[in-house]
Design a binder for these strands. Structure first.
Lengths: 203, 203
DNA sequence: TAACGTCATGTCAGTGGCTGACATTAATTT
DNA sequence: AAATTAATGTCAGCCACTGACATGACGTTA
């Protein structure tokens, strides 16, 4: 009764897709907005749910916890990375396989940059969110290592290449976010890979 | 009144150092034991405190949250790593500086191995603890990068070298934990560094 | 030694994240 | 139209964590 007279539901109009008008998406939008307005810690989950025209209990049916609502894309990202590793050219070194996968991933495109930026600002100011981000990155690394093993790369090479690939990813992502000339993400990956080589070899 | 008739306080006898007989240490022991016996999630903080002869409120004066009790050594580890980076030989590459620091760190010694093993088993079976571990590792990486910058290493080289160093660290630590021949930690660091080089260069 | 100040701890009340159990209602199937 | 399914609501409760205040042990100083 009270979950329907909300504030934001009008943005995604009710009764257009009938009952569930992308409840999950509404929760994600409401959470991002509220986290930005009041800060993560100062935002009770109940408020997010209310803003989305839902109940706290329903929020927890869509997301495992208060943080997860900001990490919706990670599953798809991981799938694409794994596919990229599997389909990479056969003559590459393990690390090159991972960076090649990062380049062809088609995930960090201009349309997503603004959203990624806002999200990043939130993460930077909140340790709890950073923890979750690191966990997702670790999952990414683990999946990449598994995909490398499927290509015949042995341990510990696979895990090391995957972790090194994540280091490249972090550097590349940071530059892509800050970059005002809007270079392609793949460009930043190549730059970071070169930097890593230099850091490893040059005194 | 009730916090004194506890179960474990006798292990570290009361009234030896007067009032506070290493309350912090008692909490760490109690937590490790209970997390092993019942599992992390199934152990209320109140039980840890009671086992240490203290109150839940007092637990939270010693540790920021339920997980932090397992990460007491991380501050010292970070200090040693930073010192190692600062004091490393001048002719090394940035990554070699970090791995050299890891080798001279004198932290992963045989006496700590059993405790490290038990702790590791806990982490492996609990995502919440893994998140915190990753956060500590990220802090380590950040501190190493900062120390590299103090040596004149520019960005993004410093962060990349630090992250790559953490990749080496993870691999080395994993082998040190599993190693039955009890090789020195520094040995595993060198092995991992070589593996990383191979992974980067060899097709 | 008695008064005083400090610090670790205890007590209590309260917020909020998260869960299980059960009820309700829109949408789908038969 | 009845029966079934899926998404949501309601309610009660556990527990992590915090602020405010009280207490008791220790050291200091008059």
């Amino acid at each position: 009764m009270s979950a329907t007279d909300n504030q934001l539901a009008g943005t995604y109009n009710r009764n257009m897709g009938r009952w569930k008008n992308d409840a999950r998406g509404r929760l994600e939008q409401a959470a991002l907005a509220l986290y930005q307005e009041r800060g993560f810690e100062q935002t009770p989950v109940a408020d997010i749910a209310a803003r989305a025209g839902l109940t706290e209990r329903t929020y927890f049916r869509h997301f495992a916890d208060k943080r997860e609502v900001l990490f919706g894309g990670s599953k798809e990202l991981q799938e694409r990375l794994v596919r990229g590793v599997a389909e990479a050219a056969p003559h590459l070194s393990p690390l090159e396989v991972v960076t090649a996968a990062l380049e062809t991933i088609q995930f960090f495109v201009p349309e997503r940059r603004e959203h990624a930026r806002q999200r990043q600002r939130l993460l930077e100011t909140n340790p709890e969110l950073q923890e979750r981000e690191l966990m997702k990155l670790a999952a990414l690394s683990g999946a990449a290592a598994e995909a490398l093993r499927s290509r015949g790369v042995a341990e510990p090479a696979a895990s090391l290449a995957a972790d090194a690939g994540m280091a490249v990813f972090r550097a590349a992502f940071g530059h892509w976010i800050d970059d005002n000339d809007v270079q392609e993400f793949g460009h930043h990956v190549q730059q970071a890979l070169e930097e890593l080589r230099a850091v490893l070899l040059r005194p």
